[in-house]
């Protein structure tokens, strides 16, 4: 085989290279497509809507009461430094409080955690609320 023919042969892509290229380009197209999809799907960015609730039964361990909570962002934009507060009122008086800060909560993201009280929350009124957040 002459040098010229070898050079000419090199110019053609092998099947393997075509497969790599087609997989790579389909990945790129898929990613660009998904980004465009998320772009179109949320025309107006609604501000964060933060909901907190206690979704699981409380646990009692070593004389402490663990109240699991779940906070979810139902709005459009991401919220940063989401502050979740819990107040335990017994006979109308605030006996114990708890605070938790969540670094980032993007759209539809859920975070879970627990507040810990030394008195039984069932004997009083437990108030869970999101106190604040900031825009990232």
């Amino acid at each position: 085989m002459t040098q010229f023919q070898e050079d000419k042969q090199e110019q053609k892509r092998t099947t393997a290279e075509w497969v790599t290229f087609s997989i790579a380009s389909s990945i790129l197209v898929a990613v660009v497509g998904l980004v465009s999809f998320t772009w179109i799907k949320q025309p107006a960015q609604k501000p964060p809507v933060l909901l907190v609730k206690s979704n699981k039964p409380l646990r009692k361990l070593n004389g402490q009461y663990y109240v699991p909570f779940e906070v979810v962002n139902r709005g459009g934009q991401t919220a940063a430094s989401v502050q979740v507060k819990a107040e335990l009122r017994i006979n109308g008086k605030v006996e114990e409080t708890g605070e938790q800060q969540i670094e980032f909560l993007s759209r539809r993201e859920r975070e879970t955690g627990a507040f810990i009280f030394s008195q039984n929350p069932k004997e009083g009124e437990l108030i869970l609320r999101v106190a604040s957040y900031k825009s990232p």
């Binding site: 085989m1 070898e6 042969q9 092998t14 099947t15 393997a16 075509w18 087609s22």
Partner: peptide, 29 residues
Amino acid sequence: KFNSLRKIFKRTKNKTKGKYQKNPWRSEL
């Protein structure tokens, strides 16, 4: 998709199967 690709480039593959690259798949990997 890749089956059809394979068919299309079968000829290319056969031609390129020269002495330069013994196994194009391996060198590609």
